Simulated scan of single mutants.
Amino acid sequence: MSGLNVSIAFFFLVVGVCQVLRRFSKWLLSPGAYGCLARELAGSLQLCTSCLELRMLLEIGPWGGGFGPDVVLTLFFFLFAVHGASFDGASANPTVSLQEFLLLESNLPTTAAKLLAQGAGVGLGWALTKLYWSWELTHFHFIQNLISSECSSSIHTSLHHAAFVEGTCSFFLHLILLRLRQRHLMFRVPVLAATVTFLTYAAGPFTGAFFNPALATATTFHCSGSSFWDYVWVYWLGPFAGMFTALLLHQGNIPRLFQKNLLYSQKSKYKIPKARVEARVEGKKGGQQSKGQKSNAEPHA
């Protein structure tokens, strides 16, 4: 279990360093630059390094460390709960940033800056994790270094099925994100962590369960076994289609593209009680009758 303890210490170190980076950049930068650049870069760096270490444990742990997937999935849940509590509003996911753009919550320059920061964050996270593995602090890392030069594609099913799996994971993730937007952080964080953990467990054997284009690009696009356009189809277009479908189902429209609600009828938010409506109708009838009586009672000239 010493190797597992080293990995847990690595997780705490990464979260601590990224938290210091957030505090320092918030003090140094303007709120706009912090929100679309530094916050997303720190979140993507934290997410990438943690996921790479977790995937290494998931692949090597059962036969190299004697512990099953339940240990890694438990770590996965707690780690994503920590991510949700410490990200400070960052998404670290391009599909979430594109969703905010389609919801008119961010403009094009802000969205582009977030995407660039996310790409830089996962690239930096991948490089730092590779450097950390090269130190071979545990036998897990020693084995990982031996097999990393010949990594294979994470797509273990047909191309269309893989794109469907990634799109379905993205669909459920974004649908829950949309439903929980107004909920308190104490409720939202564990629900999202449980959702991501379940989706990873269910879809992992087929595609690796990334449903994050930036994370997938940094971790699996360089592996042999699938072409670049296969990866684009599965890990970019699949999650984007899932996000788009979830947004359309939740909103009934796409605010950035069209305002007309295609799925739901627009009803009044406030309903008038039936008794009050009947009282108004009777009042109008009574008023009309009194006016008629008054006009009949007037003398003719």
Score class of each variant (00 low, 15 high):
156 H>K: 13
171 F>G: 05
156 H>G: 07
185 L>H: 14
174 H>L: 15
205 P>L: 12
192 L>R: 04
177 L>E: 04
160 H>W: 12
164 F>D: 00
189 V>A: 12
163 A>D: 00
168 T>K: 07
162 A>R: 00
159 L>Q: 06
188 R>K: 15
167 G>Q: 04
161 H>F: 08
179 R>M: 11
156 H>N: 11
164 F>C: 11
190 P>S: 07
201 Y>H: 15
202 A>C: 12
182 Q>G: 14
182 Q>A: 13
197 T>C: 13
163 A>Q: 06
163 A>G: 01
207 T>L: 03
166 E>S: 03
158 S>I: 01
208 G>K: 02
156 H>P: 00
153 S>F: 03
196 V>P: 04
160 H>T: 10
198 F>H: 11
194 A>Q: 07
177 L>G: 15
181 R>A: 15
200 T>F: 13
208 G>A: 08
200 T>I: 07
180 L>C: 08
205 P>D: 08
202 A>P: 00
204 G>M: 06
173 L>F: 11
159 L>T: 09
179 R>L: 13
171 F>E: 05
197 T>H: 10
193 A>P: 03
159 L>P: 00
201 Y>A: 15
162 A>H: 01
190 P>K: 10
172 F>M: 13
194 A>G: 13
151 C>L: 06
192 L>F: 03
186 M>T: 07
208 G>Q: 02
191 V>R: 04
168 T>L: 15
182 Q>W: 09
202 A>D: 08
206 F>H: 10
191 V>F: 07
204 G>A: 07
185 L>Y: 07
191 V>S: 06
167 G>P: 01
187 F>M: 14
152 S>Q: 14
164 F>T: 08
160 H>I: 13
205 P>M: 09
155 I>C: 01
175 L>T: 02
164 F>Y: 07
155 I>P: 00
179 R>G: 10
177 L>Q: 13
162 A>G: 01
168 T>S: 14
176 I>V: 14
156 H>R: 12
159 L>N: 00
200 T>Y: 10
154 S>K: 09
175 L>G: 08
173 L>W: 11
158 S>Y: 02
155 I>M: 06
166 E>Q: 01
189 V>G: 07
173 L>P: 00
165 V>E: 01
154 S>A: 08
184 H>I: 08
202 A>L: 15
189 V>Y: 08
195 T>R: 05
193 A>H: 08
181 R>K: 15
183 R>W: 14
190 P>M: 12
156 H>Y: 01
